[in-house]
Computed example of a mutant assay.
Amino acid sequence: MAGFRYPTRAAVMRLSGNRLVVWSPVALSPALRVAVDALGTVSYIVAPNSLHHLFLADWKRTYPAARLYAPPGLREKRRDLAFDAELGDEADPEWAGEVDLVPMRGNLITTEVVFFHAKSRTVLFADLIQQMDPGSLTGWRALVARLDLLTGPEPKVPRKFRLAFINRQSARKPIERVLSWPTDKVIMAHADPVLHDGRAFVERAFRWLSD
């Protein structure tokens, strides 16, 4: 993307009855399908924002019985996909007590839906928190990544996403909801997982909202 290599990560949330929620699907290789099928039944496929949609069609073809969910803005972008529902301010009733979510509205780049898997006490971010290995970048790419706050000692909200929030006050309310979750771990599409003290990590990542 724009000359950058963006390693990315999907996640699988297991619900009661061995139902699986596949979050931010990546390329579906035969080995990945075997690994996912060993966990349970793929029942829901979700894109967390309008940027993470490239492999939705492959997953839907492979798991036609799974419900496909669009974040705000993706239906218009991917009219070729038949979405079953759109992610809103409340989680699907079928996920009650197991998965919570909150949309981060008011961002000019994309509206990202942040997820929380209750049993594992894990929050999932797609693009709102990122980190790149500075050793993998050279020349102008290294400079751009540093200016975008992508190569610091821990994952952060990229500068471009901070600037894209047109109203910081409107962003504080959903982050307050995220901080109300009893978070231990944080999974990100573009950074290594945070496996301890996840709530404190999220609080540090969004401290700029109060500056």
Rank of each mutant, 00 (worst) to 15 (best):
89 D>E: 08
78 R>S: 01
115 F>A: 01
62 T>V: 12
51 L>G: 08
72 P>L: 14
86 E>Q: 13
120 S>R: 02
71 P>V: 15
29 S>R: 09
91 A>H: 01
89 D>G: 04
45 I>T: 06
36 V>F: 08
44 Y>N: 02
74 L>T: 13
53 H>F: 15
105 R>Y: 07
24 S>N: 15
65 A>V: 08
21 V>C: 01
70 A>C: 07
28 L>R: 14
110 T>E: 05
103 P>Y: 04
122 T>V: 02
14 R>I: 13
80 D>A: 12
61 R>L: 11
103 P>E: 06
50 S>I: 14
29 S>F: 11
24 S>Y: 08
47 A>P: 07
107 N>Y: 01
22 V>S: 09
77 K>P: 00
81 L>H: 00
37 D>Q: 01
78 R>M: 07
111 T>F: 11
103 P>G: 00
110 T>M: 10
37 D>C: 08
56 L>I: 14
76 E>W: 03
116 F>N: 04
123 V>C: 11
58 D>H: 11
80 D>F: 08
113 V>T: 10
75 R>W: 09
12 V>T: 13
16 S>H: 05
85 A>Y: 12
94 E>V: 08
62 T>P: 08
102 V>S: 00
108 L>C: 04
55 F>H: 15
65 A>C: 11
57 A>K: 06
106 G>P: 05
71 P>A: 15
120 S>T: 06
41 T>M: 03
117 H>Q: 04
42 V>Y: 00
59 W>F: 07
44 Y>D: 02
46 V>G: 01
121 R>F: 09
58 D>Y: 10
50 S>Y: 13
34 V>Q: 14
79 R>A: 12
91 A>G: 08
123 V>Q: 03
24 S>P: 14
127 D>T: 12
49 N>K: 10
23 W>T: 02
13 M>Q: 12
95 W>G: 03
47 A>I: 07
96 A>L: 05
82 A>M: 10
50 S>F: 11
58 D>I: 09
106 G>K: 02
111 T>Q: 12
38 A>V: 11
52 H>I: 02
57 A>H: 08
20 L>P: 02
96 A>H: 06
107 N>G: 05
72 P>I: 10
126 A>C: 14
70 A>H: 04
41 T>S: 07
40 G>N: 06
51 L>F: 07
22 V>P: 04
113 V>N: 03
63 Y>P: 07
92 D>C: 02
87 L>Q: 01
100 D>P: 03
41 T>K: 09
119 K>F: 06
51 L>T: 01
101 L>G: 02
25 P>L: 09
31 A>T: 15
71 P>M: 14
71 P>W: 13
11 A>K: 14
100 D>I: 10
120 S>V: 03
9 R>N: 15
90 E>Q: 13
59 W>T: 00
61 R>D: 10
57 A>G: 00
37 D>L: 01
41 T>P: 05
64 P>C: 04
46 V>Y: 11
